[in-house]
Each structure stands twice: as structure tokens, then as C-alpha cells.
Computed example of a mutant assay.
Amino acid sequence: MYFSPERNTRFAQRLFEHVRNGTTDQTADMLPYDLSIYADASIAAAERTHIFEKLPMMAVHSSQLPETGDFVTVQLNRSQVIVARQKDGSVKALINACRHRGATLVKQESGRRNLFVCPYHGWSYAGDGTLKAISFAETFGACRTQERRLVELPVQERHGFVWIVEDPNGSIDVAAHLGPQMDALLADYHLDRYHVWRSATFEFAQNWKIMLEGVLDGYHVSFVHGATIKPYFYLNMMAIEDFGHHHVTATPRRTIDRILHEPPGQSALDDYAVFGNLVSPNSTFVLHPHHIEHWTIYQNPGQNADETGRCRAVLRILTPQRQLDERGEAIMEKNWKIASAAILNEDVPVGDSIQVSANMPHAGPVLLGLNEVGNRVFHRAWRHYMQIQQEAPR
């Protein structure tokens, strides 16, 4: 069971009531805002300062680094990073650039090494970033090796993930970032017991916020996912536990009808609802009966630092077992196809169209309704991180 018995009972009570009455959780008021938040280059630049280089990012799952010497390379918002498992079991996050002339040090996605050797001039570094050797040192000249160690980023391993702050001069406290309620919820999930079954990186022609909001949105299922998801769920129906900047939501499956006669909480809800989780600023994951679908979404400026209408999304599928049997593999392949069809073929085109509208100068303000509870939490968190004090004009 994903939840504690107490939380399972709370959600069961609320979902049973919604199913019987055809209702959903709602916010106290609507939220108007301007589409320019998806297209304004100055906003994107401020996001880099206040969000992507300041806050902890769920960069790597711990199962990707099981042994000493294991490493993975990961693209953060603007930095390529080596994440390496140390001899004492800790992890370090190192900028993937040689301190001699800046060449990319490691091009492999993952592996196990004692040394990272630059392909340009052969400088070598230990897994903790220490410069170990300079090729032809006798002719290179005097060099303080401590000053030429790899640039290290603040990093912390918690709840089965390696969290990284992209600013090397920043600090990291994942528990404080999550707050006591979300921190306790992630502890209940025991994500450290999961394994990455498959991961993929996608690039989309839409702002990162549009992509994230689409994954959080339960209002659109009737219209966008008619052939893939709609038949399995009660529509426009959601219960939320709001933790300020983070949340968990529950959406009932049609199968919940089988347990409506029971006292709430008698059965675990894992097979009768899906649970969406927002870990602000840029991660969301959905709890399914057999797996967890985890998204982390970044800006994607590429060669153009002012580019706002693109994003890069990392999808990980987490499973409780490291190795799946034939039936388990078949189930996961089916779920991967469903997720791909729903997100890539259905959600993404709509999100791309929102970006088209955001690029127009006269599209006018837009609106979050009372029933868009998960998206409202995201906008609240985004405004807090961006230090925006006033609500948008109504």
C-alpha cells in the first residue's frame, strides 16, 4: 500500500463521497493570469535565477548508482553534470568540464570508473573531482591541483533520489524545501526501494510550465484522452492534500465501484485510484498499481539563451523489482505505450498550441477554474519562488 492506513482512509472517504455525488475538490476562487509567463524572455531569465539554479532538482534516482565508482551523466537546466558514488557511499555532483580547457570530460551516460580522463589533453580526475594527474606536467608549468579540481555542486541523497542545486555557491536542504508534510509523504512511499525500469528524454516546443501543468491537469481527460485514458476513470473528479508548494491528488478509477460498499479504508486504494504528486518546482509523479511514472521538466534554451518556448522532459518509470519476469515486462511495455500515446500524441500537441497562443501579442489573459486544484498549487509555488507578491488582476 502506498499510503499509511490513516491517509488511505482519508482519501477513501473523500473519493467515495465524490463518486456518489459527482463532485470534486475545488479552490476558493479562480486565478486569472497572462499567457506571457510562457513567452517572456525576462521571466525565463528570472526563473533561471530564482528556480533552476537555486532549488533542489530531483536529478537522478539512487538505483542508477548502486555501487562505489558508479556514475551517471545528467543534464540539469544549463549544466552537464557527473554524479558519482563515493567510497563512503555518498554521492558527489561535478560539472562535466575539464578544468584545463573546458572539454567535456565524460560522454557516456553511465558506467563505473576510478578515474575520469579528459579526451583532449589527458588530465585525470578522481571520482570526488580531485585532479590526480596532468599529462606532460614537466613542460606544462606549475599548477595548484586543488584549484583545478572539478567544480562541485551542492548535492543530497534523500527519498531514493539524488537532489542537486545547480549553483556551486548555493546550499541544499531537501527536507526544508519539501516541508514536513511532503517530506513525510515521500518517506511513506519508500522510493529508495524502487528501480529505474526505463528512462527517456524528450524535447517539446512549449515552455516548461505548460508541460508540467499538462501532467498535473485532470480537467482535460474527457477531451484530450478519449481513446486512451478516459474509459478507465471518473472524469473531472479529484481529491487533494495541499502542502503549500507541493501536493498529492487522488483520481478515482472506475474500478472503485467494487469497494464503495465497504467502510472507507478497508481496502488499499492502490488499484482503485491514481495518485499524482507535485514536487515543486519541476517534478511530478503518478502512482500506478504496478509502477511510478516520474517526470522532471527543465527549460531548454539550447543555443539561444532567450528561448522560452521549448522544454526538456525526463521520464522515468520506477518499479519495485530490479528485474521483471516475462509477465511483468509485458505489463510495463503496455503501460509505456499508454503513457507515450497519452502524453506524446495527445497532451504535447495541445501544449504546443498553448505556446503558439503565448507567442501572440494580443491573446488576452487566461484563467484557472475552481476545479483545477493541482494546477493552482503549482502556480502558487511558482509565484512564491519568483518572489511575485500580487495576484494577477481579475
Results as ranks from 00 to 15, higher is better:
Gly214Phe: 08
Pro289Met: 05
Asp188Pro: 09
Pro264Tyr: 09
Ala45His: 12
Gly122Tyr: 06
Tyr232Cys: 00
Tyr385Met: 07
Tyr38Gln: 06
Val165Trp: 03
Pro180Thr: 15
Val19Glu: 00
Ala137Asn: 11
His177Arg: 13
Pro119Glu: 03
Ala126Tyr: 09
His294Val: 10
Asp257Gln: 13
Ala41Glu: 15
Thr308Pro: 02
Val60Leu: 05
Arg113Gln: 13
Pro263Arg: 13
Cys311Glu: 03
Ala97Thr: 14
Gly265Asp: 13
Glu166Cys: 04
Arg7Phe: 06
Gly111Leu: 01
Tyr189Val: 06
Met237Trp: 00
Asp325His: 09
Ser199Arg: 07
Ser280Thr: 15
Gln323Leu: 11
Ile292Trp: 04
Pro154Met: 07
Phe136Asp: 13
Glu138Phe: 02
Asp29Ala: 12
Glu326Val: 12
Glu157Cys: 12
His247Asp: 05
Thr251Trp: 03
His121Asp: 03
Thr308Asp: 01
Arg383Tyr: 08
Leu65Val: 00
Thr139His: 11
Gln146Val: 11
Ala187Ser: 15
Asn77Leu: 00
Asp271Tyr: 12
Trp295Val: 09
Gln303His: 14
Glu241Trp: 01
Thr284Ala: 09
Glu213Thr: 13
Glu346Trp: 09
Val162Pro: 00
Ile256Trp: 08
Asp352Ile: 04
Leu318Thr: 04
Asp167Gly: 07
Val314Thr: 15
Val106Ile: 15
Ser124Thr: 12
Thr296Gly: 06
Ile229Pro: 00
Ile256Leu: 10
Tyr219Val: 03
His225Cys: 07
Val106Tyr: 08
Gly127Pro: 02
Asp34Ala: 11
Ala273Gly: 06
Ala93His: 02
Gln156Trp: 04
Lys132Ala: 05
His294Leu: 13
Ala250Gly: 13
Pro119Thr: 07
Tyr38Asn: 14
Val117Thr: 15
Val196Asp: 05
Lys92Pro: 04
Glu329Ala: 04
Arg149Ser: 14
Glu109Ser: 14
Glu326Asp: 13
Glu157Pro: 06
Leu368Met: 05
Leu269Ser: 12
Leu324Thr: 07
Tyr38Gly: 08
Thr308Lys: 01
Ser267Val: 13
Ala45Leu: 06
Leu367Ile: 10
Val248Asn: 06
Gly129His: 03
Arg158Ser: 15
His246Trp: 04
Gly102Lys: 09
Cys98Trp: 00
Ala184Asn: 10
Ala392Thr: 15
Thr145Ile: 12
Phe243Gln: 00
